Computed example of a mutant assay.
Amino acid sequence: MKPILVAAAVSLVVSILFTPYLIRVFSRQGFGQEIREEVQSQHAAKRGTPTMGGVAILVAMWVGYLVSHLMGGDPMTASGLLVLGLTTALGIVGFLDDFIKIRKQRNLGLNKTAKLVGQLIASVLFAILAIRFANSNGVTPASVELSFLRDITVISFGAIGFVIFAYVAISGWSNAVNFTDGMDGLAGGTAAMVLATYVLISFWQLRNDCFAPSGPMPGCYTVRDPLDIAVVAAAAMAACVGFLWWNAAPAKIFMGDTGSLALGGLLAGLSMVTRTELLMIVIGGVFVVEALSVVLQIVVFRSTRRRLFRMAPFHHHFELAGWAETTVIIRFWVLAGISCMFGVGLFYADWLEKAMILK
Rank of each mutant, 00 (worst) to 15 (best):
L279D: 06
I102M: 14
Y167W: 14
F287K: 01
F126E: 06
I35K: 06
D151F: 03
Q42A: 06
T77E: 11
V25Q: 09
R36T: 01
G91Q: 04
L81T: 10
K115N: 06
K252W: 01
A236G: 09
N135I: 02
A60Q: 08
V25M: 08
A239H: 13
V163K: 05
F18C: 03
S171R: 05
L58K: 02
E353A: 13
D228G: 09
Y167K: 00
K252R: 12
K115G: 03
L270I: 00
H43T: 01
L96C: 08
A159R: 12
I253D: 10
A127E: 11
V232P: 04
A60R: 02
L227Q: 15
A235H: 07
G285E: 06
V344S: 11
A251E: 08
W204C: 04
G109A: 08
A235E: 07
V273N: 01
L206P: 04
V168H: 02
V177L: 15
V344N: 08
V144I: 15
F211M: 08
A45K: 11
A44S: 15
L108E: 14
I357T: 12
I338G: 13
L82A: 05
H43D: 12
G284S: 04
W245S: 02
M183Y: 11
A56N: 04
F26W: 13
A249Q: 13
A262S: 13
I35Y: 07
A234E: 10
K104N: 09
V288E: 02
I16L: 13
L335C: 11
W245R: 09
D228W: 07
K354R: 14
G73N: 09
A187S: 14
P226L: 08
V39L: 09
A192D: 13
L125S: 07
S202R: 09
G215T: 11
V177S: 08
M311A: 13
I329V: 15
L278K: 01
L116W: 02
F342Q: 07
V63N: 05
S68A: 14
F254I: 00
P50I: 03
G48P: 00
E145L: 12
Q297D: 13
S27A: 05
S271C: 07
G54M: 01
G256A: 09
C220R: 07
A89Q: 04
V14S: 03
A324T: 02
N178L: 03
R132N: 15
Y21T: 06
G64D: 08
N135F: 05
G64Q: 07
N178G: 03
G80F: 09
D184Q: 09
D151E: 15
M183C: 09
A233G: 11
L149A: 14
A321N: 12
A78I: 01
T153Y: 13
V334R: 07
T140G: 06
N175I: 02
I102A: 11
A349I: 02
I298D: 11
V63C: 06
L12C: 03
N247R: 07
G188M: 14
F314D: 01
M71R: 07
S147C: 11
L17P: 00
I229W: 02
V59Y: 12
G172T: 10
